[in-house]
């Protein structure tokens, strides 16, 4: 089973440039964790960022170099480097060929693994490279961070008809939520005011445009009115991010939407 629906270039460029709202960044980071194609494209767009930076020089204060040299302390060992400095490690972090580096070589494997999973019980996910599509109950690291655990830790709220959602905490400008759709169930027809991204984590759904399986992203703009239906046989779990409130045209009256925070 392979991914057929990828992130768009504009989304990857905006993520590389650091301009996406947090909810969209979460979805992009989760998809890239599962998808080599988009990981490669992202690396290429970050290279463009490097080229733009090369072209941006302005003079520094006269004492800048002296000030910088005075600040240099002992560099961090790689296994001690925290998760916080993300960009630096987005692609450079998992180096495990550090044999040449006397002090870091022996522990580089452990370092890479703690990078990938540290913040939750997904630490067990040791072979990120070998199999990146999540197994049932298993999620990519960026999403585990936001849930605070795996799928069993999700605090679902019912939307009716067996459909459930869980809002994930992100900053303003866009919202992210997990959706649980029972096997064979349809999600109420809805349109969009902004952009809605839906990433399938488990199971699959189908709508008028196509079928979307694990790892696939559907990018829906204002024009798409659709009724996603989960495949029979397995519930479909998705991560959805939108930069505008959804407007349901069936089942859930619009007046109720504020209650659901969607």
């Amino acid at each position: 089973m392979s991914i057929r629906h990828h992130l768009s270039d504009p989304l990857l460029i905006a993520y590389a440039a650091g301009t996406l709202p947090e909810a969209f960044s979460l979805l992009v980071a989760t998809h890239v964790s599962m998808c080599d194609t988009c990981r490669a494209a992202l690396a290429a767009f970050e290279t463009v960022g490097g080229a733009v930076l090369q072209d941006s020089a302005v003079p520094l204060a006269e004492d800048a170099l002296a000030a910088a040299m005075a600040r240099l302390g002992a560099p961090e060992k790689r296994e001690a480097i925290a998760k916080s400095d993300a960009g630096a490690k987005s692609d450079a972090g998992a180096k495990s060929d550090a044999g040449a580096k006397s002090d870091a070589g022996a522990k580089s494997d452990a370092g890479a693994k703690s990078d990938a999973g540290a913040k939750s019980d997904a630490g067990a996910k040791s072979d990120a490279g070998a199999k990146r599509l999540p197994k049932p109950g298993d999620l990519p690291a960026p999403l585990l961070d936001y849930i605070g655990g795996d799928l069993t830790a999700v605090k679902w709220r019912s939307l009716g008809m067996g459909v459930r959602q869980a809002i994930l905490p992100t900053s303003k400008g866009a919202s992210a939520r997990l959706l649980y759709i029972p096997a064979g169930q349809a999600v109420p027809d809805h349109g969009h005011r902004g952009t809605e991204l839906t990433l399938v984590l488990q199971g699959a759904f189908r709508d008028a445009t196509d079928r979307f399986g694990p790892g696939d992203v559907e990018i829906a703009d204002e024009d798409l009115q659709h009724i996603p239906v989960a495949d029979a046989g397995e519930p479909c779990i998705c991560l959805a991010a939108t930069d505008a409130p959804l407007r349901f045209s069936a089942l859930i009256p619009r007046l109720l939407q504020p209650l659901f925070r969607i």
Partner: peptide
């Protein structure tokens, strides 16, 4: 705001 990052790949 936070910027979620992709999982780091272990190149073996």
């Amino acid at each position: 705001a936070r910027r979620p990052e992709p999982e780091v790949l272990d190149w073996g």
